[in-house]
Amino acid sequence: MGSEARAVMNQEIFRKLMGAMSRPGRLFRLGTVCKEPLMDILNVLLDHEVGFCVTGADSDTLGRLINAETGAKAVDISQADYVITPAEGIGDELFRAKMGSLEYPDKGATIIYYGAKPAENGKFIFAGPGVPDGGISFDPGIPDDEIKKLAEINSGFPLGVDAVIVCEKPALICMPRSLKITGGK
Protein backbone atom coordinates (compact mmCIF):
# COMPACT_ATOMS: atom_id res chain seq x y z
CA MET A 1 0.00 0.00 0.00
CA GLY A 2 1.34 3.44 -0.95
CA SER A 3 2.00 6.07 1.68
CA GLU A 4 -0.85 8.30 0.53
CA ALA A 5 -3.33 5.40 0.47
CA ARG A 6 -2.15 4.46 3.97
CA ALA A 7 -2.58 8.08 5.14
CA VAL A 8 -6.14 8.15 3.78
CA MET A 9 -7.00 4.79 5.36
CA ASN A 10 -5.51 5.85 8.73
CA GLN A 11 -7.61 9.00 8.66
CA GLU A 12 -10.82 7.08 7.90
CA ILE A 13 -10.17 4.55 10.67
CA PHE A 14 -9.25 7.29 13.12
CA ARG A 15 -12.57 9.05 12.49
CA LYS A 16 -14.38 5.81 13.32
CA LEU A 17 -12.26 5.47 16.47
CA MET A 18 -12.96 9.05 17.47
CA GLY A 19 -16.67 8.58 16.80
CA ALA A 20 -16.71 5.40 18.89
CA MET A 21 -14.76 6.99 21.77
CA SER A 22 -17.08 9.99 21.87
CA ARG A 23 -20.24 7.86 21.56
CA PRO A 24 -19.66 4.78 23.73
CA GLY A 25 -21.88 1.83 23.02
CA ARG A 26 -22.51 2.74 19.42
CA LEU A 27 -21.14 0.22 16.93
CA PHE A 28 -19.02 1.87 14.23
CA ARG A 29 -18.73 -0.35 11.19
CA LEU A 30 -15.38 -0.28 9.42
CA GLY A 31 -16.98 -1.60 6.24
CA THR A 32 -14.56 -1.84 3.38
CA VAL A 33 -12.20 0.67 4.96
CA CYS A 34 -9.87 -1.99 6.29
CA LYS A 35 -9.11 -5.63 5.59
CA GLU A 36 -7.30 -6.54 8.81
CA PRO A 37 -9.16 -4.54 11.46
CA LEU A 38 -6.77 -5.11 14.37
CA MET A 39 -3.55 -4.36 12.49
CA ASP A 40 -5.11 -1.42 10.68
CA ILE A 41 -6.28 0.13 13.96
CA LEU A 42 -2.86 -0.45 15.53
CA ASN A 43 -1.27 1.28 12.56
CA VAL A 44 -3.36 4.37 13.34
CA LEU A 45 -2.27 4.52 16.98
CA LEU A 46 1.12 2.89 17.47
CA ASP A 47 4.60 4.06 16.57
CA HIS A 48 8.08 4.09 18.10
CA GLU A 49 6.96 6.52 20.83
CA VAL A 50 4.67 4.02 22.61
CA GLY A 51 4.97 0.61 24.24
CA PHE A 52 2.56 -2.27 23.83
CA CYS A 53 1.91 -5.64 25.44
CA VAL A 54 0.16 -8.58 23.80
CA THR A 55 -1.57 -11.25 25.85
CA GLY A 56 -3.22 -14.51 24.78
CA ALA A 57 -2.17 -17.64 22.92
CA ASP A 58 -0.33 -16.16 19.93
CA SER A 59 1.20 -13.29 21.81
CA ASP A 60 4.80 -13.83 20.61
CA THR A 61 3.92 -14.02 16.91
CA LEU A 62 1.47 -11.14 17.10
CA GLY A 63 3.91 -9.08 19.17
CA ARG A 64 6.67 -9.51 16.58
CA LEU A 65 4.27 -8.58 13.79
CA ILE A 66 3.10 -5.44 15.60
CA ASN A 67 6.70 -4.40 16.29
CA ALA A 68 7.65 -4.92 12.65
CA GLU A 69 4.58 -3.08 11.31
CA THR A 70 4.49 -0.11 13.69
CA GLY A 71 7.93 0.21 15.30
CA ALA A 72 6.34 0.21 18.78
CA LYS A 73 8.25 -1.55 21.58
CA ALA A 74 6.97 -4.66 23.35
CA VAL A 75 7.03 -4.00 27.11
CA ASP A 76 5.60 -5.48 30.32
CA ILE A 77 1.90 -4.87 30.86
CA SER A 78 2.67 -2.52 33.76
CA GLN A 79 4.54 -0.22 31.34
CA ALA A 80 2.36 -0.63 28.25
CA ASP A 81 0.45 2.26 26.70
CA TYR A 82 -1.55 -0.25 24.66
CA VAL A 83 -2.53 -3.72 25.83
CA ILE A 84 -3.71 -6.01 23.04
CA THR A 85 -5.75 -8.99 24.06
CA PRO A 86 -8.26 -11.48 22.61
CA ALA A 87 -11.94 -10.81 23.41
CA GLU A 88 -11.81 -13.46 26.17
CA GLY A 89 -10.04 -10.83 28.25
CA ILE A 90 -6.99 -10.83 30.51
CA GLY A 91 -8.66 -11.31 33.87
CA ASP A 92 -6.74 -10.08 36.90
CA GLU A 93 -3.79 -8.99 34.76
CA LEU A 94 -5.98 -5.98 33.94
CA PHE A 95 -5.21 -4.60 37.40
CA ARG A 96 -1.51 -4.38 36.42
CA ALA A 97 -2.20 -2.08 33.48
CA LYS A 98 -1.24 1.60 33.79
CA MET A 99 -4.00 3.76 35.26
CA GLY A 100 -2.18 7.08 35.04
CA SER A 101 -1.73 9.49 37.93
CA LEU A 102 -4.07 12.21 39.19
CA GLU A 103 -1.72 14.80 37.63
CA TYR A 104 -1.48 12.88 34.34
CA PRO A 105 -4.50 10.57 34.01
CA ASP A 106 -3.90 10.42 30.24
CA LYS A 107 -0.99 8.06 30.98
CA GLY A 108 -3.55 5.32 31.66
CA ALA A 109 -3.39 2.44 29.18
CA THR A 110 -5.74 1.67 26.31
CA ILE A 111 -6.89 -1.95 26.26
CA ILE A 112 -7.61 -3.24 22.77
CA TYR A 113 -9.79 -6.37 22.65
CA TYR A 114 -9.99 -8.16 19.30
CA GLY A 115 -12.29 -10.79 17.84
CA ALA A 116 -15.32 -9.68 19.89
CA LYS A 117 -18.90 -10.50 18.98
CA PRO A 118 -21.06 -7.67 20.34
CA ALA A 119 -24.83 -7.76 20.63
CA GLU A 120 -27.46 -5.08 21.00
CA ASN A 121 -28.82 -5.89 24.44
CA GLY A 122 -26.63 -6.71 27.38
CA LYS A 123 -26.81 -7.08 31.13
CA PHE A 124 -25.10 -3.80 31.89
CA ILE A 125 -26.32 -0.22 31.76
CA PHE A 126 -23.81 2.30 30.51
CA ALA A 127 -24.13 6.02 31.23
CA GLY A 128 -21.94 9.11 31.24
CA PRO A 129 -20.34 11.43 28.66
CA GLY A 130 -21.25 10.49 25.11
CA VAL A 131 -24.36 8.58 26.15
CA PRO A 132 -27.81 10.22 25.89
CA ASP A 133 -29.77 10.70 29.14
CA GLY A 134 -31.10 7.49 30.64
CA GLY A 135 -28.11 5.39 29.60
CA ILE A 136 -27.92 2.52 27.15
CA SER A 137 -27.60 -1.21 27.32
CA PHE A 138 -25.39 -3.21 25.00
CA ASP A 139 -23.23 -6.30 25.04
CA PRO A 140 -19.70 -5.26 23.99
CA GLY A 141 -18.73 -8.87 23.29
CA ILE A 142 -16.26 -9.33 26.13
CA PRO A 143 -16.92 -11.47 29.26
CA ASP A 144 -19.08 -10.03 32.06
CA ASP A 145 -16.20 -10.51 34.50
CA GLU A 146 -13.96 -8.39 32.32
CA ILE A 147 -16.58 -5.61 32.20
CA LYS A 148 -16.88 -5.72 36.00
CA LYS A 149 -13.10 -5.43 36.32
CA LEU A 150 -13.06 -2.46 33.92
CA ALA A 151 -15.81 -0.83 36.02
CA GLU A 152 -13.78 -1.43 39.19
CA ILE A 153 -10.58 -0.01 37.72
CA ASN A 154 -12.37 3.03 36.34
CA SER A 155 -14.31 3.72 39.54
CA GLY A 156 -11.55 6.12 40.59
CA PHE A 157 -12.08 8.42 37.59
CA PRO A 158 -10.06 10.18 36.17
CA LEU A 159 -7.66 7.29 36.85
CA GLY A 160 -8.33 4.24 34.74
CA VAL A 161 -8.04 2.56 31.37
CA ASP A 162 -9.92 3.05 28.11
CA ALA A 163 -11.15 0.08 26.10
CA VAL A 164 -11.35 -0.28 22.33
CA ILE A 165 -13.24 -3.38 21.26
CA VAL A 166 -12.51 -4.57 17.76
CA CYS A 167 -15.27 -6.81 16.46
CA GLU A 168 -15.08 -9.65 14.00
CA LYS A 169 -17.52 -8.06 11.55
CA PRO A 170 -15.36 -5.61 11.22
CA ALA A 171 -16.55 -2.86 13.50
CA LEU A 172 -15.54 -1.25 16.74
CA ILE A 173 -17.00 -0.08 20.04
CA CYS A 174 -15.23 1.99 22.67
CA MET A 175 -15.61 2.15 26.43
CA PRO A 176 -13.80 5.24 27.74
CA ARG A 177 -13.01 5.39 31.45
CA SER A 178 -15.65 8.10 31.94
CA LEU A 179 -18.37 5.50 31.31
CA LYS A 180 -20.41 4.57 34.38
CA ILE A 181 -21.25 0.87 34.36
CA THR A 182 -24.07 -0.56 36.46
CA GLY A 183 -26.07 -3.81 36.54
CA GLY A 184 -24.73 -7.19 35.46
CA LYS A 185 -25.98 -9.19 38.41
Binding site: L17, M18, P158, D162
Partner: peptide
Protein backbone atom coordinates in the same frame (compact mmCIF):
# COMPACT_ATOMS: atom_id res chain seq x y z
CA UNK B 1 -4.77 11.46 17.36
CA UNK B 2 -3.65 9.45 20.41
CA UNK B 3 -3.89 12.55 22.59
CA UNK B 4 -7.27 13.51 21.12
CA UNK B 5 -8.71 10.09 22.02
CA UNK B 6 -7.42 10.46 25.61
CA UNK B 7 -8.91 13.96 25.76
CA UNK B 8 -12.30 12.56 24.72
CA UNK B 9 -12.03 9.78 27.33
CA UNK B 10 -11.33 12.33 30.11
Amino acid sequence: RRKTLKAIAI
